[in-house]
Amino acid sequence: MASSTKPPPVEALKPITSVSASPPRLLPTALSLPPKWLNMYSSFITANQSSVTQIESALRSLTYIIPGRFRDAELASESLHSSIQLLSMYHDTLLTRAISKLPGMPNASLHNRYTKFWIAKSKFYRRIATMLTMIQYTELLWEMMAKRKGERVRWRIIVILELVKAVCRLCLLRITNSRPLVTPALPERETIPEEEAPTEEEEVEMEEEVTPRVKEYKMKRTGLSLPTLPNPSDISSYLLSKVLTADDIKAPNTLLNKVNGSAQLAEILHIIQPVIYAIAMSRSKDKKDWQPWLLGLSIEYAARQLRKDGLRTTALEREQWGKRGWAMGWWAMRGAFYENVTKGFLQSTSERLPSLVSGVLDDYKYLWDEYYFSTSSN
């Protein structure tokens, strides 16, 4: 007699794939969190600009007060300083975006108008300028790390960094159609106007005043309202605030004239001068040798003499050349001039100063004696 078999249950005939659980939905949620956090952080920085600026200044001051007192902690101190500088650069980007969205903002500085124009026009300019700024903020840190592996490695890193900066500046010169370089290459931080809360005395005065409110006149055809007239005793300052100069109505790219001929050669000499000086210093075995110092200073002086300073010089050009003129003062703290002249003067001055001031001066002397980028102006 054939044995009868019991058919399997219906659940067993279902495919195995139907039993597998659906993939978790946590991954899209996790990926959406970082943009939300960045937006929250951006809103916080924008709403608390003054407080953030004060905190940055306080932290930066910690690295300025005693830079070399603890010889083993110089790397940590410079790491903190570089991190603060990079964070400040990110904050500048956030504030620039926030300011561009605000209506009725006052006119930006000539430097910010020029740099914002090229950042908006060329992504390559923005990337190169950001790279150049990051190198400038971290170059001393790179030198400190390289020095621990020997002087040869240190000078090799110095030359490489100067060479990379020169290439970045030549790229910026090319992107801007042979216009002079500006310092810094990125827009500077602008303050967002905050509404000041009235004091108690002002509130009392406002309550005591019973003057009727002047109504704005609304135009019938356009529907726009004309602003109220200013206080009669303050008409002069009101009119001066509305005056526009020639630079205010210029296109941003015309704030700097194109350079050609000797002026272009002067700009190229200004760019390659740090590279030549770094190579000369790396090959010199004596810090008191005048040859590298005279070579670097002569190239910078030749660049200033070759530039054209005529009637067509714009206000932004005069501002940038003024900065370069003041930056030449750093040559008194570099190379043979520092070793033969400035160092002895600082030593004799430190002996006559109070102990607290002389201690801070000695701390800075340690950086000036040991590191190339501590007195670099480029």
Rank of each mutant, 00 (worst) to 15 (best):
T5I: 05
E11V: 07
I16C: 05
I16K: 12
T17C: 04
V19H: 11
V19C: 04
A21W: 06
A21S: 11
P23T: 06
L26C: 05
L27Y: 10
A30T: 08
N39Q: 13
N39H: 09
M40C: 04
M40A: 12
S42W: 00
S43P: 00
T46N: 04
A47I: 01
I55E: 04
E56V: 02
E56D: 04
S57I: 06
A58G: 03
L59F: 14
S61Y: 10
T63S: 15
Y64P: 00
G68F: 08
R69G: 14
R71H: 11
A73K: 05
L75P: 00
S77G: 09
E78T: 08
H81D: 10
S83L: 13
I84P: 00
S88L: 02
M89G: 12
Y90V: 05
L94E: 03
R97I: 01
A108S: 13
A108Q: 13
H111Y: 01
R113K: 12
K116Q: 08
A120C: 06
A129G: 03
M131W: 12
T133S: 10
I135L: 14
T138Y: 05
M145F: 10
A146G: 07
A146T: 01
G150A: 05
E151D: 14
W155K: 15
I157D: 06
V159A: 12
I160K: 10
E162P: 02
L163K: 02
K165L: 12
V167K: 07
L181M: 11
V182E: 01
V182A: 02
P184W: 07
L186Y: 04
R189W: 00
T191Q: 03
T191W: 01
I192C: 01
I192T: 10
P193G: 05
E194M: 05
E196K: 11
P198A: 11
E200Q: 12
E201W: 04
E201Q: 15
E208T: 03
K215Q: 11
E216F: 02
E216I: 03
E216S: 15
Y217L: 14
M219A: 08
K220Q: 08
R221Q: 07
G223H: 10
L224V: 09
S225M: 11
P227M: 07
P227R: 09
P227C: 09
P232L: 10
S233W: 11
S233C: 06
Y238V: 04
L239V: 14
S241D: 15
V243G: 00
D248N: 14
P252Q: 05
T254K: 14
N257G: 07
V259L: 12
A266P: 04
I268Y: 12
I271R: 07
V275R: 08
M281D: 03
R283Q: 08
K285M: 02
K285G: 02
D286F: 07
L294P: 01
G296S: 03
Y301E: 08
Y301N: 06
Q305Y: 09
R307F: 04
K308T: 13
D309Q: 11
T314K: 14
E319Q: 13
R324P: 00
G329D: 00
W330N: 11
W331L: 13
A332W: 08
M333I: 02
G335T: 11
F337G: 03
S348F: 05
L353T: 06
S355C: 03
S355W: 09
L356F: 12
L361P: 04
Y366D: 03
Y366V: 10
E370F: 07
Y372M: 10
S376D: 10
S377V: 02
